[in-house]
Amino acid sequence: MTFSVFILCLFCDTPYIQAITSSREAYEKTGNVIWEGHTKEKIVAITFDDGPHPSYTPQILDILAKYNAKATFFVSGNKVKSNPGILMREIKEGHEIANHTYHHYYNKNMTADLLSSELDQTDKVIWDIAKYKPSLYRPVGGLHNDIIINTAVKKGYKVILWSWHQDPQDWKRPAPNKISTHIINSLRAGDIILLHDWSDRPQTVIALETTLDYLYKNGYECVTVSDLIFRSNVSTPGFFRTFPVE
């Protein structure tokens, strides 16, 4: 069944496309869109969007190495082009690289052609630098609809969002303790945690160390998103995890 519909504008000569957004349950049952893992094992996936940043990403990598933690970096192609050495370090240290488009457009009217171009440009710059092909994609700002998801899936991507309860909104630059407290107090096995490594991120760097210290003292392991998927059953079509409304 397709959920995308075409609506003809009655007052102009040019047709436009209205992209339908289906329910989380409908998307999750396909196995193509994932919000978190489904496991009792004490594993979580910490993710970073928008980088790499020439200053903050290396600091983040130092902290991850200190705790032997693995992360997934949803990189923007134009930032990768400017910081190729950091991308190589991420890969060499065992982290996962995922596609977050090239120009980081937040576009509610995203077309299949534009998204395809954005994904292809990012794939190319990553391949040219590291001979690495991402298999995961995160929409900018988490914005998703049938056009965005279907386009990504046709290009071979699994679409990764994040646990609804694990967005500490570090992009608003709250105090470090607010970021870490949000993550720790909301913690569940299988969480996909959303953070960012672009723009002004000293708060995120400080909060990361506090968070990792807590996780490892309490028996949690930080793994890549692909590892989280492999070790849980979210990659199976038909899976859907229900949560109480918060």
Rank of each mutant, 00 (worst) to 15 (best):
R89N: 15
I91V: 15
I91W: 13
G94H: 15
E96Q: 15
E96A: 05
I97V: 15
A98E: 00
N99T: 02
N99A: 06
N99D: 10
N99M: 03
H100K: 03
H100Y: 05
H100L: 07
T101W: 00
T101I: 02
Y102E: 00
Y102T: 02
H103M: 10
H103W: 11
H103G: 11
H104I: 06
Y105T: 06
K108Y: 08
K108M: 11
T111E: 04
A112K: 08
D113S: 11
L115T: 02
L115R: 01
S116V: 03
S116F: 01
S117T: 12
L119I: 13
D120E: 14
Q121F: 12
T122Q: 02
D123E: 14
K124M: 12
K124A: 12
K124L: 08
I126P: 03
I126R: 04
W127G: 12
D128C: 11
D128M: 10
D128Q: 15
I129D: 05
A130E: 13
K131E: 14
Y132F: 15
Y132D: 11
P134L: 04
P134G: 10
S135L: 14
Y137E: 00
Y137C: 00
Y137A: 00
P139Y: 01
L143Q: 08
N145E: 06
N145P: 06
N145I: 02
D146H: 14
I147D: 02
I147F: 03
I148N: 02
N150M: 09
T151C: 07
A152V: 07
A152S: 14
K155C: 04
G156P: 05
G156K: 07
K158N: 03
K158D: 02
V159L: 08
V159Y: 02
V159K: 01
I160W: 00
L161S: 06
L161K: 03
W162V: 02
W164Y: 08
H165S: 12
Q166M: 14
Q166R: 05
Q166L: 09
P168N: 06
P168Y: 04
Q169K: 14
W171V: 09
W171S: 10
W171Y: 12
R173L: 13
P174S: 08
A175H: 09
P176I: 10
K178G: 07
K178I: 08
T181A: 15
T181Y: 09
T181K: 13
H182E: 07
I184F: 04
N185I: 05
N185C: 05
N185Y: 03
N185R: 11
S186G: 04
S186K: 02
L187I: 11
R188W: 04
A189E: 14
G190E: 00
G190Y: 00
D191N: 12
D191P: 02
I192T: 01
I193Y: 00
I193V: 08
L194S: 04
L195V: 09
L195P: 03
L195I: 10
L195A: 10
L195Y: 10
H196Q: 05
D197F: 03
W198D: 14
S199E: 14
D200S: 14
D200L: 15
R201G: 03
T204M: 07
V205L: 11
I206F: 06
I206E: 15
A207I: 13
T210S: 15
T211D: 09
T211W: 07
L212T: 05
Y214S: 05
L215P: 00
L215E: 01
L215G: 01
Y216N: 14
Y216T: 13
K217E: 13
N218R: 09
G219D: 09
Y220F: 15
C222S: 15
C222E: 10
